[in-house]
Design a protein around this nucleic acid. Sequence first.
DNA 1: TAGGATGCTGGAAGCGCTTCCAAGCATGGG
DNA 2: CCCATGCTTGGAAGCGCTTCCAGCATCCTA
Lengths: 348, 348
Amino acid sequence: MAVAGQRVSIFDVAKRASVGVGTVSRVLNGREGVSAATRKRVLAAIDALGYHPSRLASGLSRGRSDAVAVVVPFITSPSVVVRLEGILEVLDNVGLNTVLYSVGNRQQRDRHLGVLGDRHEAAGVIVVSIRLSRQHVERFSAVGTPLVLVDTRVAGVPSIEVDNREGGRMAASHLLGLGHRSFGFIGDIDRKHLGFSSSSERLEGFSARIAEAGIDPSRIAVRSGIHSAGEAAVLAASILELVEPPTAIFAASDTQASGVLSYLKSKGLTAPGDLALIGFDGLEVSALLGITTVAQPLFESGVRGAQLLLQLLAGEVPDPGELVLPLRLLPRSTTVSGASIEPVSRSP
Amino acid sequence: MAVAGQRVSIFDVAKRASVGVGTVSRVLNGREGVSAATRKRVLAAIDALGYHPSRLASGLSRGRSDAVAVVVPFITSPSVVVRLEGILEVLDNVGLNTVLYSVGNRQQRDRHLGVLGDRHEAAGVIVVSIRLSRQHVERFSAVGTPLVLVDTRVAGVPSIEVDNREGGRMAASHLLGLGHRSFGFIGDIDRKHLGFSSSSERLEGFSARIAEAGIDPSRIAVRSGIHSAGEAAVLAASILELVEPPTAIFAASDTQASGVLSYLKSKGLTAPGDLALIGFDGLEVSALLGITTVAQPLFESGVRGAQLLLQLLAGEVPDPGELVLPLRLLPRSTTVSGASIEPVSRSP
DNA sequence: TAGGATGCTGGAAGCGCTTCCAAGCATGGG
DNA sequence: CCCATGCTTGGAAGCGCTTCCAGCATCCTA
């Protein structure tokens, strides 16, 4: 055991095993060229001293850390969490250390990305949902740190995305097909200025499709607020209090759709009878509540992103570097009355 | 801008500003004893070169990093995420860098905790939900790294917890009060062996209270599986297929309760008519679905934990070092028929 | 048997920062 | 006019590791 207050260094291990520090380093890194007997002595010393190598020193000396950095926006949205699960699933499996950097505002973003790009503090970096400038990206490519984007993109950088405009169109088509002609939209505001654009892109696609159907898109009742179910409930109220409320609402996320549904229930209203409702994401909560949604492969986006990074780390050049994953419309009971109810599935 | 492939060091900045590295360091760390003119020259050089100090080097040199490490179990449960939000809320506000270490198994746990405790790679550490051994803790106290536990505890270490046994008792009392006499329990298995014990503690309290009511607790239909809604649905099926199914089920978490409810709906059954259902945690999903639950202050646990750490970092000794937060039973429509439905609230 | 290969090993240099000490330079009091 | 005092400043040492080179056995080959 380590003596209280004393930090054990590679030097102590070397002394105890009667070898040089170089040899200890070789053992630590599983490099060959160390006899079995010596290796055993070193391992015994490490064990006896309770030694842990300093990641700082090794990273500094090597010029790069061996951890993977994942930069995520302040984890406030369930969709980010699911993506993260996918990323960790892959990275954990191959035994890579993963460090998460949570970004709550632009300042934090620039600091973290600056350091991660400028210095080699990570073997590779995955950025989730945060919009990067070309400058940010150039830093990474200049020093050769592999970079992968999930749910965001910059030309020329490997990324995983969905087509949010297409998703908006799908939602509109579904509602139009059901005969709806008046619409509301509940989206979120990028208050932290991190460049979140999916909400507005979804609205764009939605509006475009509505226009194609010959309906004036400026008549869509658009409301935006912070991304939360509670806020969405309030926004829903404001829409339903209109003189001529729409017959259908498209919420930019399932979280927001669930807030709308909760508001309806509290007023004794039902979907789709009083209001048709469609969300986005395909979160588990939408299945539990029976909310129709445009589902995107969140978990898979994380998995693919991590796999892309592994390829880059292995020196390969991923072929379809910029991947667009497919969306699926899941019709459920908030738009189609009498839709069959399925239990949530066992696998995520 | 930095020249491609070239890393800019403090030395380059010093040269450009025609000062010594010591002076640059002083400027970087906002230390006084630098004339305004010199400071301005240094800042200009930093800007011109696009310089970012290396956290590795500064951490190594200083003997400690200035970031706060938060160790969380592989983010699989929404409750952990909410706690994390609370932690980040506080830490972000005071401008502390936060780095998350995700732990998926014992090996990872020991590696991360070993390094964080042994070396000074973090100014302070918050561990969420993972059980620590006395040995782990001693490492931290030996080197003097502040440590705070959230949702787990070790005697003598500042921590934030709830009384899970008491929560189990509250659930039992509620169901007993409604006249139920036969029970099922759906909990989770600590498959990763990270020492999660809340599920079993909740069962203990539940059983104890049942026994006090004169009912043989061994007759509780206990089922356990991995922590997910889907798995809980399967376990619920196995309980309801019993020859004499219970009239009420206590699920160890809201996530699991939501799975049970989803199963009921898919079978055309209702709560509490066919089965009374109570969950645990007070997640938003329980409000959305109207599930009765034993609510714990998740967000607040994170906030308090972070505040505790800030106190320790400031050198203060927190007075009630080991905090037990209160639980609240929220009766909703899965146990009390006709319970009023409230919209989800605006604030989290 | 000698000369070169080969396999292990020790340890110095260097990664980029902080910190501390000594030194330079004004300034003010005596 | 001289020296003590207080600011600023430069830069060497050291944090703990990796890496590379040189040194030493040992082994193989001709």
